[in-house]
Write a protein that binds this DNA or RNA. Structure first.
Ligand SMILES: [Zn+2]
Ligand SMILES: [Zn+2]
Ligand SMILES: [Zn+2]
Ligand SMILES: [Zn+2]
Lengths: 142, 142
DNA sequence: TTAGCTCCTCTAGTCACTGTAGGTTCAAGG
DNA sequence: CCTTGAACCTACAGTGACTAGAGGAGCTAA
């Protein structure tokens, strides 16, 4: 019988986060001691590891919910799991493309500024006037 | 005299977002009509454009607050503005590096899965067992 | 005048946690 | 058996940067 603190340490999760996962139905309600403390088994440890690993790979909790469901039903087709992963990959690629645009623009404005008074700062100038930019970068950053 | 809706359209901002910026002190409290509606001048339009452009380049509202402050004081040194921009660039680079790791891992697991039952799905297997991964990717995704 | 658009305030929700306050339980050492 | 202190409990508030909705008031033109 495993305590919540043990699960936390094993998976690199904060204790509150595990309780949060329980609250939103991602982790099951575990058994309790007479005093009301949670006690887990190995299945729950595995489930939490899965969740954390998927989070590290950038999946949303909603996506993870579906992936866990598929993992719980081994006879089903894995098409949906693959589709979720492909969606995630596409999202990552899009984000990288957007970041690359920002990176170039930032690099350029930093390079061009030769210091001095704020009045002549290239960084501030570019921020004031988008026509100084080489790219469109519409949609908010990140 | 410009309405909030005009500013919104000109800058591609939602009306509520402009009111939100006012609430957190990023935009000044504008004058009002007798009926209580906000009316802006061109200075406010410029300020909002600055904010939006900086947001598109990924700066946080706190960073933008400092950048606006510097832009309002042209005699000051621009060192701090440059430092903020360099910090932002570094953050973008770090995020891209993390995303590249995710991208490779996702690409690999999608490629390796040949479809079929969820029991044999490579995607689910990798999520269950981090030792199937080639990289460490610690820290939560994005 | 009346239609219909825009504007107002206020509240709550998003995502995925994280932090805090104030109290209870558990396990080990004496 | 008793005490100590770490780990646990619930409940609620806060993060960033908005976004959505309710319910009402103002503004403009036909
Ligand atoms: Zn500068
Ligand atoms: Zn630009
Ligand atoms: Zn598969
Ligand atoms: Zn891994």
């Amino acid at each position: 019988m495993l305590t919540i603190g043990y699960l936390a340490k094993k998976t690199g999760t904060k204790v509150q986060t595990i309780r949060y996962y329980e609250q939103i139905g991602l982790m099951p309600e575990p058994g309790r001691t007479d005093g009301g403390q949670r006690r887990y088994g190995n299945a729950e440890l595995d489930r939490l590891s899965f969740i954390r690993h998927a989070r590290q790979l950038g999946f949303s909790l909603d996506a993870i919910r579906e992936l866990l469901d598929l993992s719980d039903h081994p006879a089903r087709s894995c098409e949906e799991a693959d589709a979720i992963a492909r969606r995630q990959l596409k999202q990552v690629e899009q984000r990288m493309a957007r970041l690359e645009v920002l990176r170039l623009e930032l690099e350029r404005m930093i390079e061009e500024c030769s210091g001095g008074r704020a009045a002549d700062c290239r960084v501030l100038e570019v921020l004031r006037d988008h026509s100084e930019c080489l790219t469109d970068h519409e949609g908010i950053g990140t």
